[in-house]
Simulated assay, not measured.
Amino acid sequence: MSRLAGKNTVVSLIFNQDVNIDKSGDLTITVLSPIENGVRHVTDFLVSTQVCEKSPYLKPIIAMAEDPTEICLGEELKREGANKFGEKEGEDTEGVLVWLAHLHELTEEHMALLGLHEISITGIWHAIHMWNVFEHKKDMKALQPWFNKWCATNLVGKVLDLDTARLLALPCQIFDHAVGFATITRYLAYNHTGHIKACQQPKGCNANLTRLAPNDFLGPTNHARGGLKTALTKSLWKKAGDVLRFKQSKCNCWDATVGQYLGALVQLDAFPIEDVITHSSIREILERLKKFKYDWQPKCDICAGIDWLYVIKKTIVDTERYFDGLCLDCMDRSKPKGNCLDDKYWKANASGTGGRWDHRCRIKHNQPTWYVSWLGRDDTRQKLLKGASGGYRPMKDE
C-alpha cells in the first residue's frame, strides 16, 4: 500500500504483525515508524488504558483522542522547519516495544515471547531515550534486567564488530553492565585502527544520560590502546636490544642476527610499531606476528641460542593479557565525588586483600586495566601504584 507523504513523495506502508502487550487490553496504539528508503512500517500495539494513563507522555494523548480506544504515535510534524513538506517524524518500533513492555511490567518470559531480547542496538538506544524522555527520567534500573538478558543473549560467545562495539558502550555504561562494558572497551582497544572516537548517535536519541562523561570513556580506552602499543614495542625490541648492548664484543654475527630478526618483522608489516600502528589495529599486528619465521642460521653458539620464535610467541601472549577492558567499578570509585580528596576517598581506593588490583570489582583484571580505568588525580594513582613500601607493585596478580 502506498500514499503521498509530503511534496511528490510516495511512501509505501508495510503493516507489521500486531503486538499484544496486554491480551485483554482496551487500547490500540498505532505506531508509525520513520520513513526509510520510501518505506514506513505500521504496527498496532494492544495495551491497557489504565496502565498507559500512568504515563505522563501518554495520558494527555489519550485524553485528547477522538476515539479513546485508539491513538497514533509517530504523526508529529518535525519542528523548527526541519522538513519543509511536513513529513512525519515517526517512532522507532523496537524502542516503543521496550517502553510499553516495561510500562506494563511484563514478565521476562512474556518479553522473550515478544522478542525484546533480540532487538537491534538502535532499538536499545531508542528505548533508553523514550524511557528517559517520555517517562520524565524514571529510574533506568527498571530496564536493567531486560538489558542484562539482552547482553546474555547477544554478547556472550558472539563475534563483535567496531560499529556494534561503539554503539553498545553507552548502554553498557548507563545500565552499569560491568562485564559488557569491559568486553566492549577491550574489543575497541585491540581492534580499532587509529584514535577511537565517539559513535554517531541514532537519529532522534538523546545521549545526555551517562554517569560518565564521554571523555571519561574515550580517554581511558585510547589510553589503553596506547599502552598496548608501548607494551608491544618493548616486547619485540627487548631481546634485540640486549644483543646490541651486550653481545657485540662476543661474536661477529650479532648484526646479521638482529638484522634478520627485524627484517622478518618488517616483511610482516609488524615493525616498527610506531609506523605500523597508523594503519593497523593491535589485533591485526598480533595476527601478522603469528606468521613469523626466522630462517637465518647464526655462526656462533651465543646467537644460535636465541629463540626468536619464543620471543614472538611470548610477545603475543603478553599483549593479549595486557588489557582486560575498562572497569566500571574502578572508574566509579576513583572519580572524585566532592571538592577534595579526603580520607573516605582514599580508603575507597586503597588496595584490597592481598594487594589485588581487582578487589571489590565485578570483573577480574590486572594492573594496566586498573591504571587506565582511574579517573582521579594522578598523584593519588601513583601513591596507590607504589604501595606502602614506596616501590612499584607487580603488574600481574599471582
Results as ranks from 00 to 15, higher is better:
Ile282His: 08
Ile282Arg: 12
Arg283His: 15
Arg283Lys: 13
Glu284Val: 06
Glu284Lys: 14
Glu284Leu: 02
Glu284Trp: 02
Glu284Met: 12
Glu284Gln: 15
Ile285His: 01
Ile285Gly: 13
Ile285Asn: 10
Ile285Thr: 15
Leu286Tyr: 14
Leu286Gly: 12
Leu286Arg: 10
Leu286Thr: 14
Arg288His: 12
Arg288Lys: 14
Arg288Ala: 15
Leu289Asn: 11
Leu289Val: 11
Leu289Gly: 10
Lys290Glu: 14
Lys290Cys: 09
Lys291Met: 11
Phe292His: 07
Phe292Glu: 03
Lys293Trp: 02
Tyr294Gln: 07
Tyr294Gly: 11
Tyr294Ile: 03
Tyr294Thr: 04
Asp295Ala: 14
Asp295Pro: 01
Trp296Phe: 15
Trp296Pro: 03
Trp296Val: 10
Trp296Arg: 05
Gln297Phe: 00
Pro298Tyr: 01
Lys299Pro: 00
Cys300Ile: 07
Cys300Thr: 05
Cys300Trp: 02
Asp301Phe: 04
Asp301Ser: 15
Asp301Glu: 13
Asp301Trp: 02
Asp301Ile: 10
Ile302Tyr: 05
Ile302His: 05
Cys303Gly: 03
Cys303Asp: 07
Cys303Pro: 05
Ala304Glu: 08
Ala304Thr: 10
Ala304Ser: 15
Ile306Trp: 10
Asp307Thr: 00
Asp307Lys: 06
Trp308Pro: 04
Trp308Lys: 07
Leu309Asp: 15
Leu309His: 15
Leu309Phe: 00
Leu309Met: 10
Tyr310Leu: 15
Tyr310Gln: 14
Tyr310Asn: 13
Tyr310Glu: 12
Val311His: 02
Ile312Asn: 08
Ile312Tyr: 11
Ile312Ala: 00
Ile312Cys: 05
Lys313Trp: 03
Lys313Arg: 13
Lys313Tyr: 10
Lys313Leu: 07
Lys314Tyr: 09
Thr315Gln: 04
Thr315Ile: 09
Ile316Tyr: 08
Ile316Asn: 04
Val317Glu: 10
Asp318Gln: 14
Asp318Lys: 15
Asp318His: 11
Glu320Ser: 05
Glu320Val: 06
Arg321Ser: 15
Arg321Thr: 12
Tyr322Gln: 12
Tyr322Trp: 14
Phe323Cys: 06
Phe323Glu: 04
Asp324Asn: 13
Asp324Gly: 14
Asp324Lys: 12
Asp324Thr: 08
Leu326Pro: 13
Cys327Thr: 06
Asp329Trp: 01
Asp329His: 09
Cys330Glu: 10
Cys330Val: 15
Cys330Tyr: 08
Met331Asp: 07
Met331Phe: 04
Met331Cys: 11
Ser334Glu: 03
Ser334Tyr: 01
Ser334Ala: 07
Pro336Trp: 02
Pro336Asn: 03
Pro336Glu: 06
Gly338Phe: 11
Gly338Gln: 04
Gly338Met: 08
Gly338Trp: 04
Asn339Val: 07
Asn339Asp: 12
Cys340Ser: 14
Cys340Arg: 05
Cys340Ala: 13
Leu341Asp: 09
Leu341Trp: 08
Leu341Ile: 13
Asp342Leu: 06
Asp343Cys: 01
Asp343Gly: 03
Lys344Pro: 00
Lys344Tyr: 04
Lys344Gly: 00
Tyr345Lys: 00
Tyr345Ser: 03
Tyr345Met: 02
Tyr345Asp: 02
Trp346Gln: 06
Trp346Thr: 05
Trp346Val: 06
Lys347Thr: 07
Lys347Ile: 01
Ala348Gly: 04
Ala348Glu: 11
Asn349Lys: 01
Asn349His: 05
Asn349Ala: 02
Asn349Ile: 12
Ala350Ser: 12
Ala350Arg: 08
Ser351Asp: 09
Ser351Leu: 12
Gly352Asp: 00
Gly352Gln: 02
Thr353Leu: 03
Thr353Phe: 03
Gly354Ser: 02
